[in-house]
Write a protein that binds this DNA or RNA. Sequence first.
DNA 1: TTGTATGCGTTATCAC
DNA 2: GTGATAACGCATACAA
Lengths: 346, 346
Amino acid sequence: MKIHKRTTIHDIARKLNIAASSVSRALNNSSKVSAATKELILKTAEELNYKQNYMASNLRKGQNQTIGVVVPRINQNFFSNVIAGLEEVTYKNGYNLVICQSNESHEREVQCVETLINQHVSCIVISISVEHTNSEHLKNALAQGIELIQFDRVAPELETYKVINDNEQGAFDAVSHIISQGYHRIALLEGPQNLSIFRQRKAGYLRALEQHRVPVLEELIIKNAWTKELGAKATRKLLSMQNPPDAIFASTSDFSALGVLEVATQMGFKVPETLGICGYSNEAFSEITTPSITTVDQYSKKMGKAIADLYFQEIKEATNSNIYKTVSIKPKLMIRSSTQKKLKVI
Amino acid sequence: MKIHKRTTIHDIARKLNIAASSVSRALNNSSKVSAATKELILKTAEELNYKQNYMASNLRKGQNQTIGVVVPRINQNFFSNVIAGLEEVTYKNGYNLVICQSNESHEREVQCVETLINQHVSCIVISISVEHTNSEHLKNALAQGIELIQFDRVAPELETYKVINDNEQGAFDAVSHIISQGYHRIALLEGPQNLSIFRQRKAGYLRALEQHRVPVLEELIIKNAWTKELGAKATRKLLSMQNPPDAIFASTSDFSALGVLEVATQMGFKVPETLGICGYSNEAFSEITTPSITTVDQYSKKMGKAIADLYFQEIKEATNSNIYKTVSIKPKLMIRSSTQKKLKVI
DNA sequence: TTGTATGCGTTATCAC
DNA sequence: GTGATAACGCATACAA
């Protein structure tokens, strides 16, 4: 390991024959220092290539200008976009982002949170793993005085700040659109129901059916079809029925919808003519499949910014932290070819 | 802002009527502590919910268990995969990742590096922005004793550890394959030539043509066509020629190749029959376009792991840091439909 | 306005 | 083995 001596405020003080405290003040742009000495100090700081030591500064101030992020997977479009949005705002505020991935494992998630607590981050931003069973690790963070913002996949039993999509509305809009296109037997591929986002999407599906007086058929509701492979498997089963569905709403993701599309095409179904398909999340690829897939955009980057804004504008300065605000972002239905039975767009 | 008092080693020491230094030793699993007291200390540490303060520990030890990452964009498949790989290994080693994005701006990149230097990170992992003009900011980091690993887009003029793809070979393999399929007029969409990765890919293209005795036609080499839009624009121009190319190698990215595919389809060209298309990077979508796009996989996640391994296994422990190793990862040609003129695979 | 002194929480270096 | 003490670099209350 290389050893390297970096210049400190004492080095500057010594060189100028002044007190280190004056140097500190000047560098922090305090008003209690004359313009002349301030200028001199800044100049020599530049000369000596001085860099503030955040470890010392943070230790002294008792706070760490860092926000920890825990997501299931960094390399998933939705999450990397949220992180991109987050980074933009935190960077402007002079904060750093420490990023961890739980890989959808609860155990790993607990370890990540543990690490972030040890790092004394100011805030933890988290989207819980699919294995979520309890929130002890998050309560622990709160007990240590760390702010907590849950987003997208939130634990409803835990009262914290939350930034979510209106999943019920997103699903409702999607299914309403499907119905309006003349589809009647609409299957639902649902995600693990321990996660509220998937429960809400199912609720939106059911509300849309009810409101448009379309009967709910239990045999068309497939549990746990939330990956491309599971979506494909579910589709093989659905389309082999004597009376198959005429539309499939892959409420979990566009990946699942892609699995549906591939199997349907293989099995000779015409999309959208004999089978309508709708996904969720507006992954980049959903626009370029053949046909393009109707989906729901979650404004992921905007979500990241909203999380950061929530922290910097409300939480950080808050004196009363008993009111936990929930920010809900309205998703947007992206109507594409895969559901356009009536008006075929080229 | 909430104030919260966290338990320190002094709290534990006071409670047990022993010295704080003993507590520290016990928590660091030092051999100079009796098993009995160690056990007692660990037990009460647990009871009092003690968490080590890394700010203090790092300050005292003069090192920060953190690696800084600077990439053009977090939400780009290649980079988010590299980060995912990096995170996996750094996490295991008890290190954290601080992530910044330059948004392809040199100025912003300089600021990012500045921030990471201030954070006293142990190592900076960077892929330079397209605007790269000089490496003063990186030299500055080195001067502060921070290790530096460049990856993918590296500044060749700066001697550091590097983890790269063999871009020349990747392009050579791609173009050789295109030629083997019977294409003869092969256009090249090149990226900004100030970045070595794009120069190398061009070199691979030229070497393949030369080796297979295919003439190089200057009018088929299009500068700066590295986004989807620029790829589309270049394609409109190329396919409007009296004697258009029969294949296009979008050496910069699959995004560019996608632009090519869309325009070619619009203009009535049959892919791969009348026009072969090859991209670069193996973005997720390249597999699901119609037809699927032949491309070059860069093993992005593996690259992230290789970077982290390089740091933990070689750099961190190195006494002699004059030898800068370069790790080169061999890319893999992914042959898909868009270039399969001879053997059409379904 | 400037200087002095103290402490943030930890670890390393001494003594004992 | 254990305890006392200093120091990491900085920010701040207080004195001057």
